[in-house]
């Protein structure tokens, strides 16, 4: 699974993307974030405040309770601020 990060999530983690293989028990975006948060202090810092975290699965915006089974790409990022 490819993970992509944007804005301060990307800055805190220190890379714009990474390939991971979470275990099958990691079934939702929330569970994926829990699993990722212990990988490094940067991941922990990026995911410390879930209320400010948004996600997309295969480029579709989803809630953090969304399933990730079969997902090719999961994006994690702050609330959007375009326009």
């Amino acid at each position: 699974m490819r993970l992509v990060y944007f804005a301060w999530v990307r800055e805190r983690i220190g890379v714009p993307a990474e390939e991971v293989e979470p275990p099958a028990t990691v079934a939702t975006v929330d569970a994926l974030v829990d699993w990722l948060a212990v990988r490094s202090p940067g991941h922990a810092a990026a995911f410390a405040d879930r209320t400010r975290l948004r996600a997309a699965v295969d480029q579709q915006f989803v809630g953090l309770d969304a399933a990730i089974a079969g997902a090719r790409e999961v994006a994690l990022f702050p609330p959007v601020t375009g326009g």
Partner: peptide
């Protein structure tokens, strides 16, 4: 323009 601000992935 209203929906662009909440629905499109841009960060300033």
């Amino acid at each position: 323009i209203d929906r662009l601000k909440t629905d499109a992935p841009f960060w300033k």
